[in-house]
C-alpha cells in the first residue's frame, strides 16, 4: 500500500470540496467517493455569516484527513504565508502547494513552486506540489524535499483528461518510488482509470464530481473507476500490438473443404 508521508490510504480517490450545489451534496459525495482525503482552502472570513466556521464543522464530521491548498497564490511569498496559516488553521503539516504562473491555464509557476517547496519542507511541511509532468522540475522538487508529487492531467477544471500521456508515463517511470497523485483536469471516470492503470497512486477530483448533474452518483462512479484502474495496474496489463493475434487457439481447428 502506498504511503503519503507515512500515511497509508485505502482509498486512492482524493476529493475536492469546492463548487458543489450544496453542503449536503458535498457531504453525500464524500461518502459515495469513499474518500479518505479531502482538499480544503482558506479565504477571508466575513465574521457575519460564519460560513467558514460552518464549513469546517461539517468537514470535521466527515472524519477524513484534510489536505489544505494554497490555491490562488501567484508568488512564493503568498504561497508560503498561506501555508503557514493553513498549518495552524487545519492542524496539519500537509500542504497542497500551488504557485500559479499563468491566468488562463492556471499552469504552475514551476520556478516559484520549487522555491516555495524548499522553504516549506525545511520548515517541516509535508508538501504535495501541484506541478506539470516536467521531469527536471520533478527532480528539483524531490531534491527540495518533496516526497509526493502531484502532476496535472490537464488545466484545472478543464475536464480534458490526461493531456500528455507520454510525459506522464515518463514521469511515472523516472520516479517509480515517489507517490504521485494526478491532480487537475480529469473530467471522466475513464480518465481516472487511465491514470491508475498507468501506475499513479491516486487521483484528486473536484470539478468533475461537483459539477456533474448528480455529484453523488458521479462520486460513486469515480470510486469504482479508480479502484478498477488500480486493480488493472496490479494485474499487469498486456502490451498493445499493431497486428491481430487470434485469441482462440488454432490448433485442432477443423478444416471444411
Amino acid at each position: 500500500m502506498t504511503a503519503f508521508y507515512g500515511v497509508e490510504l485505502k482509498s486512492r480517490l482524493m476529493l475536492g470540496t469546492a463548487r458543489y450545489p450544496s453542503p449536503a451534496g458535498l457531504a453525500r459525495a464524500v461518502k459515495a467517493a469513499r474518500a479518505e482525503v479531502v482538499t480544503v482552502s482558506l479565504r477571508r472570513e466575513s465574521g457575519a455569516d460564519r460560513s467558514g466556521q460552518q464549513f469546517w464543522t461539517m468537514v470535521r464530521e466527515f472524519g477524513v484527513r484534510v489536505l489544505p491548498n494554497t490555491a490562488g497564490c501567484h508568488s512564493v511569498k503568498e504561497a508560503v504565508t498561506t501555508a503557514h496559516m493553513a498549518r495552524e488553521l487545519f492542524d496539519t503539516a500537509w500542504i497542497k502547494l500551488e504557485v500559479i504562473g499563468e491566468h488562463d491555464t492556471l499552469q504552475p509557476d514551476v520556478f516559484g513552486l520549487v522555491e516555495a517547496a524548499r522553504i516549506l519542507t525545511a520548515e517541516g511541511f509535508e508538501v504535495f506540489p501541484y506541478t506539470t509532468e516536467d521531469l527536471v522540475v520533478a527532480e528539483k522538487l524531490v531534491e527540495a524535499g518533496c516526497r509526493v508529487l502531484m502532476p496535472w492531467g490537464a488545466p484545472i477544471g478543464s475536464g480534458r483528461g490526461l493531456n500528455n500521456i507520454l510525459g506522464l508515463k515518463s514521469l511515472r517511470a523516472h520516479f517509480a518510488d515517489v507517490p504521485m497523485v494526478v491532480d487537475a483536469g480529469i473530467g471522466l471516470p475513464s480518465h481516472a482509470t487511465q491514470a491508475m492503470e498507468m501506475g499513479f497512486d491516486a487521483v484528486l477530483i473536484n470539478t468533475a464530481v461537483a459539477q456533474a448533474c448528480d455529484p453523488v452518483l458521479m462520486a460513486e462512479a469515480f470510486a469504482k473507476a479508480v479502484e478498477a484502474g488500480a486493480l488493472a495496474h496490479r494485474a499487469g496489463p498486456m502490451e498493445p500490438r499493431d497486428m491481430a493475434v487470434p485469441s482462440t487457439p488454432v490448433i485442432g481447428q477443423a478444416f471444411f473443404r
Binding site: L42, N69, L89, G157
Partner: peptide, 10 residues
Amino acid sequence: LEVLAPMQGG
C-alpha cells in the same frame, strides 16, 4: 489584517 477561515477548495 488578513483574517482567514476554512473554506471549500480543490
